[in-house]
Amino acid sequence: MSPVLEVAVALRAVIVGIDRYRDQRIRDLSYARTDAEAVAELIEQVHPAQRHVTLLLDEDATKRNVQVEIGERLARDAGADDVVLLYFAGHGTPETSSGPDEAGRYLALHDTEYDNVYATGLSMERELPWLFERISRPPLVLMLIDACFSGRAGGRTFEGPRRKAARATARDSGMISLDDLELGEGRLMISACDDDQIAYERRGLGHGVFTHYLLKGPATADDGFTIGVHRLYEEVAAAVADHTGGQQIPVINGRSTRARLPYLW
């Protein structure tokens, strides 16, 4: 019989993938849902008692549901010893008609309306940082965005870490425990491309290019158990840029102090 794991720290994740859009004028995607499901599967290596994953796919990924899961439930439930991972795969878009916010960039949710992106999309510059600020207790919050124009996410208004905390991991029966690993702190967003670039899907990969290399991950851990977030970014960014001939270059925004993730690859 396996020993009972006393839960002191958890990995809490909200993972969003949207191929299908309610407004038929928004082009459907091919691999965003698959990308999200693959990221959720990657997290399954964390001990079941220490992972809490919400998966929002297609029609479940409405603006209301995303805001409730992140801004209400996750903000309420995530504790001072937890790690938070947010992931989004889908369309990123500016407003579809000229307006006062011509430079603005938005994540398109399942119910985003083509003619009303400002009201029905999720602003990368304003609403995403606001959602991050509501997740106030965990020392480490990381968002990964596989969407066009996503380098603007967070922007210059992005706030840095609020608290310090120690973390840990040990492997038990093939599962990763988070009990003894130092994972640092930070508020970081890693986006698939710059704010004037396209995030590509590739049929030959069966994924978005960014998520494909994210899922491959670094070949080795830094210390056998963890990987630095900035090292993860550098390796994924280099692979994506090489694959696309420099047409897509991932961006990292935010601040951190030795932010690390459990090595899941």
Rank of each mutant, 00 (worst) to 15 (best):
R73W: 15
R73E: 13
R73D: 09
L74H: 09
L74Y: 03
L74F: 00
A75V: 14
A75D: 07
A75F: 05
A75I: 14
A75T: 15
R76I: 02
R76T: 10
D77W: 05
D77A: 09
A78K: 03
A78Q: 10
A78I: 05
A78R: 03
A78H: 10
G79P: 06
G79N: 02
D82R: 02
D82K: 01
D82P: 09
V83N: 02
V83H: 02
V83R: 10
V83C: 07
V84T: 04
V84N: 02
V84C: 00
L85C: 04
L86E: 11
Y87L: 02
Y87E: 07
Y87R: 04
F88W: 12
F88R: 08
F88E: 01
F88A: 01
F88S: 02
A89V: 11
G90F: 10
H91Q: 07
H91W: 11
G92S: 06
T93S: 15
T93I: 12
P94C: 01
P94Q: 08
P94W: 00
P94S: 05
E95Q: 14
E95A: 15
T96G: 04
T96I: 07
T96K: 15
T96N: 15
T96S: 13
T96Y: 06
S97P: 00
G99Y: 07
G99H: 11
P100K: 06
P100F: 05
D101A: 08
D101K: 03
E102F: 10
E102N: 14
E102I: 13
A103P: 01
A103Y: 06
G104M: 05
G104C: 00
R105A: 09
R105L: 06
R105N: 10
R105V: 12
Y106T: 06
Y106A: 04
L107N: 04
L107Q: 11
L107Y: 06
L107I: 08
A108T: 03
L109G: 03
L109M: 15
L109N: 00
L109W: 05
